[in-house]
Design a protein around this nucleic acid. Structure first.
Lengths: 214, 214
DNA sequence: CGAGAGTGGATAGCATTACTATCCATATTA
DNA sequence: TAATATGGATAGTAATGCTATCCACTCTCG
């Protein structure tokens, strides 16, 4: 497969493919002569992954680069699989030097959450810190959202059960690909479904029984 | 409250506040003389909302502008509340002209999802289309993620139940604020909790019983 | 074999986004 | 009254994600 076909198959402009090659997001093709190359199915797949992470997942090019490096790494073990995918996607956490009232309350709330739900994770794990930041922000903006935090955590725990269940009986490489896609596209999927479900619930709740569509 | 204090209270640099004023994200202060103004608690709150949507919610300034316009609008009714918040946050949908195999399969899958879960929503609602796009992308990248789509939809439905439950017995203005924060920060909250829960589940599943921390 | 299109590689340019900096005339404060 | 702050206008900036152009090859097709 040459450049033109790679571009057609993937839907990515030639100039952009060259840019990704320069940036190291896409591995070079197999040389057929000093300045010609041939590309494979793998290149198409990789391009599709890049576009999916960028457009659907909303990652930056820099984050995509990190994710791809993780996918290509060969020193992974079972315990690190979620970690590498999460590391690049996790939002900045709560500033550890911030000892304001809100920050401390948020840290305590997170701690309680971990204890109550028996989530055994290192207390300084970046996603834990990111969670603390989100909670701190909600706390000072719209604290009512935190009223059902435990109910939400319960549900999210079940989502995570599904997430790890998917890995059952697969090779490490497959697991990495599933976790990467599942982390980034999984967020997009859950957000999109949530919006649809909200409309349904809102319509049910606020439509009076004598309205036409009941 | 003058500019310097507003900046201190909100943590936003003076130059940035001036920029937001120019852009219309922050309403002008109350004039005390032709070229002096005084700001209120409301300005601090608005600034915090802007920063939360930008930094935690990951919205662009343009999206923040739209969201704030929706918050300020006074022609809302019960049915539109989720719609306005969602309209600005919803990702681009599946191209309606795309009749490729994947696109059609995704549309059918979404339709089935709506029917199976009795989600009564307009089939051309933007979030429905956005969902179709996410599903199409997953379909061609890592289709195994769709195996548990129904289980996930079930859980997300319960999340949406919580979302609307929060509105019970509140004024329309309060509802708008809760929906806006709940939509944007709610996504961030769920993603952050999911990451934490994943690590917990992954550790439980892949740690052998004789390992130290069991 | 040769003409025209395609290719890899290098370099430069561009549009957008979200600020940041400077200036200045007027206000406020000490 | 002198230092400082403010509102408003204008210009500049850094990062991001491409696009465009050029060039010396190389492949393809008649």
């Amino acid at each position: 497969m040459r450049m033109a076909e790679l571009s057609r198959e993937s839907g990515v402009p030639v100039a952009t493919i060259k840019f990704y090659l320069r940036e190291g997001l896409l591995p070079a093709g197999e040389r057929t002569s000093p300045n010609q190359a041939r590309y494979s199915r793998e290149h198409v797949r990789r391009l599709r992954l890049i576009r999916a992470l960028l457009e659907v997942g909303g990652l930056s090019l820099a984050q995509v680069t990190e994710v791809l490096d993780a996918v290509d790494a060969d020193d992974l073990d079972q315990h690190k699989i979620f970690g590498v995918a999460q590391a690049t996607v996790t939002q900045p956490g709560l500033d550890p030097d911030d000892d304001s009232e809100h920050a401390q309350a948020a840290r305590e709330r997170v701690h309680k959450l971990l204890v109550d739900h028996d989530w055994r994770v290192p207390p300084d794990w970046p996603p834990v810190n990111a969670l603390a930041r989100v909670i701190a922000t909600i706390q000072e903006l719209e604290p009512v959202l935190l009223q059902q935090l435990d109910a939400r955590a319960e549900l999210i725990g079940k989502v995570a059960d599904l997430d790890v269940e998917l890995l059952e009986g697969r090779s490490l490489e497959q697991q990495v690909e599933i976790v990467v896609a599942g982390t980034v596209l999984g967020d997009a999927l859950m957000s999109a479904m949530r919006r649809v479900a909200q409309i349904d619930r809102s319509a049910r709740k606020f439509t009076r029984p004598d309205d036409h569509d009941m």
